[in-house]
Design a protein around this nucleic acid. Sequence first.
DNA 1: AAGACGAAAGTGGTTGA
DNA 2: TCAACAACTTTCGTCTT
Length: 307
Amino acid sequence: MHYVKKCPECASINLFWNKEKGEIVCKDCGLVIEEKMVDFDQEWREFDSEAAARKRRTGAPMTYTQFDQGLGTDVGKKSDLYALGSKGKNKFFRLRKWQQRISTAIERNLKLALAELKRVSSYLKLPASVEEEASRIYTLAVQKGLVRGRSMESVVAGTLYAACRRHDVPRTLDELSEASNIEKKEIGRTYRFITRELGITILPSNPADYIARFASALKLSPETQSKSVEIIERAQKVELTSGRGPTGIAAAGLYVAALINGEKRTQREVADVAGVTEVTIRNRYKELLDELGLEKEIKKSKKKIAS
DNA sequence: AAGACGAAAGTGGTTGA
DNA sequence: TCAACAACTTTCGTCTT
C-alpha cells in the first residue's frame, strides 16, 4: 500500500490528514483528496514513449467546477466527414443533433449555475477547495433533480453554505445572503433540503472557527484571538455551547477576551461583525461569567488600565 | 450622551403527540 | 397536522460610565 506523500496538484508535501473525515487536505493549495486513500504514483514503469502511451490511462485533471467535469466529448469533428459516405454523413448529423439535445437540458443549467457559483464564491473569497466541493454538491443535486421548483441561485447559495460548513470555514447565512441576493430563510431552507436529500452529514459548526475572521474585522490582537478561543474551549467543556448559535458564542467569547486584554470593543461593534444582536451577546456573556468565573480577570485588567 | 443592561413580545424552526 | 418549546431578535425603558 502506498500513501499519498505529495499533493497531486501543487506537489507540496505539506499535507494534513483528517482521520475522522477520511480526507487529506493540502495546506498549500487547499486541494482535498477525499474519502479514499489514493496512490497517485504510477504503478508501472516507462521504458520508452511508445510503451508509456499504451500504459497511461489518465487525461487532463478532472474538476467539478467545469460544467462537464472537464471530460466532455463531442460527437465527431467536421474533418471526419471526408471519411464518410453519404449514409455515413446522415448518421453523423443525426448523432450530433441528438447529443446537442441531451446536452442542452442539464448542461446549460449547470453551466449557468457554476458561473453563478464562482461569482458568489469569489465575492466571499472562499478557498478553491470549498468552491470545488460546492460544485460537486450542486452537480449531484442536479442529477437527482433537486433543483426543480427552486431557483438556481438559491440552490447555489445553499450548496456553498454546505460546502463551507464541511470545510470548517463557516460563513454566516447573512454573508451568503448578501453575496447572492437570496433571502436568509430561503438559503437555509434549500440548504436543509439539499443536505437531507443527498445524505450529507452536517456537523454543527464550531464557534472557534469564526474567531479568526471576526477578530480581524474588529482589528483585535492575536493574543485576544487565542484568549477567546481558549474561553470558548472552556465553555464547551461545561456544556455551555450546545444548542446555542455558534456565532453568538463566538461573539461573546471575543467580547470578553477583548475586555480582559484591555482592547475593549462595544457590544454593538462585535454584534455587527458577528451578525447577532447585542442582546444575544449579553446573554452568552453573562453565562460565560457565571460559569467560568471570569470576573477576576476582568477586574485585574481594569486595574491595569487605571494604573 | 453613549453604552450596557434587562424585560417583554414576536419570529422561524424543531419536536413530539 | 398542530401545539409546545428553545433560541434568537426587536423594541424600549432604565441604569452606568
